[in-house]
Simulated assay, not measured.
Amino acid sequence: MTESANRSPAHAGSITGPEAMFTEPEDLVTTGVSLSNGRYSIGEQLGSGGSANVYRARDELLSRPVAVKLFRDEAATANDRLRQEREIRLLGELRHPGLVELYDSGSVLHRGVEHRYLVMEYIPGATLTDRLQDGPMLPRDAAALGAQVADALSFIHTRSIVHRDVKPDNILFSDIAAFGHANLVKLSDFGIAHFVGGSRLTNTEAISGTASYLSPEQALGETVGTETDIYSLGLVLLEAITGRREFDGGIVESAVARLHRDPVIPPELPAAWHPLLRSMTARKAENRPAAHEVASSLREIWADSRVRRVRRVRARLGVVAAEGVAPRIALLLAAATAAAGLAIGLAVGILAF
């Protein structure tokens, strides 16, 4: 299980001492607990994984919300400490709009044992998992999301880093609008990331990752490269568009399925999606495109969908023009009609209230 820094508990209780930060229950809130001589005030627990808990917190010095990832007792050996330090140094070197940023790190004593913690950017928006609770995304919206995630993957891949756990829970929607997007998308949780040709950064099982999004090489327990993130992103995009997981079920059932068949790509998808998704989810890693190629293709799909939308609007206005109304006037009429509709809607809402 990986840590999610943006999932609030359903119910909140009360904790009076620092010991509460090392407990397993998720439906708890820490009060009166602080780190770094009072700089970080700890709030509710946001998530829990195999090696750490994640809390919402506040940086009292800079007056901003943050997320704190606190490693628990399981990570107490010399090798585990080394992996923690490597993860901290890795995250400290990564600066990209599509990655959750590391602000600070430190240590806290608990029962005579020193525990490391990370202070990270807090993303108040929903995860892709949350977003899909409302149903599938439009293909153009999935393309916009996928392009941003592929950009972030390209950034880490050029530094020989494999994320190994690309999934909807680790894709966060921020409240920042930039680069033509209403919401910047952030890739989170490098808990099981590793260097290409290097050792793992954190403790993990023999098969690392989440069952539904494993690449074939992950499912076989083989050495993985950057191509494994591309396969996982392909499955994420397919789920975003269809609203269902392509390979569901337990790890064995899910692993066997992807080793014997390719994902089913909906025939009704725009033509450009088919070769892209087929190549991203190719069973042989060497047949998959690089992350920057995926980002470029998705951006073209996104741009093309916007052009088609403009053409449809112009076509509708053209019908009005053909009936004797100039396009410019037709555009003003369309705007006036929209404004009138909004006014009527507000009036009905007020009366209903």
Rank of each mutant, 00 (worst) to 15 (best):
L109A: 13
L235I: 11
D169Y: 05
E101C: 00
G221Q: 11
F155Y: 15
G249S: 03
V185T: 10
T77P: 05
V149M: 07
L91G: 04
A206S: 14
V33T: 13
A315E: 12
S41A: 15
A178K: 09
A126I: 07
A150I: 05
A339H: 02
T2W: 12
Y231Q: 01
P266V: 05
G92P: 00
L132A: 06
E293A: 14
L145K: 06
R116E: 08
S154Y: 13
D151P: 03
A75K: 01
V66L: 10
S254H: 10
H181I: 02
A147Y: 08
R306I: 10
I88H: 03
V236G: 03
N170E: 09
F353H: 10
D73K: 14
N53W: 02
R56M: 09
A334Y: 02
F179A: 14
E227T: 05
A182D: 15
E85L: 14
L351E: 12
D304L: 08
K69Y: 09
S105L: 00
H181V: 00
L128C: 00
S4G: 12
D73H: 12
R89C: 03
Q148K: 01
A75C: 13
H194E: 14
L90W: 06
E93R: 15
Y122T: 00
V119H: 02
G249H: 03
G349K: 03
V66D: 02
L214Y: 00
L220A: 12
T129Y: 06
V320F: 07
W302A: 15
S215R: 01
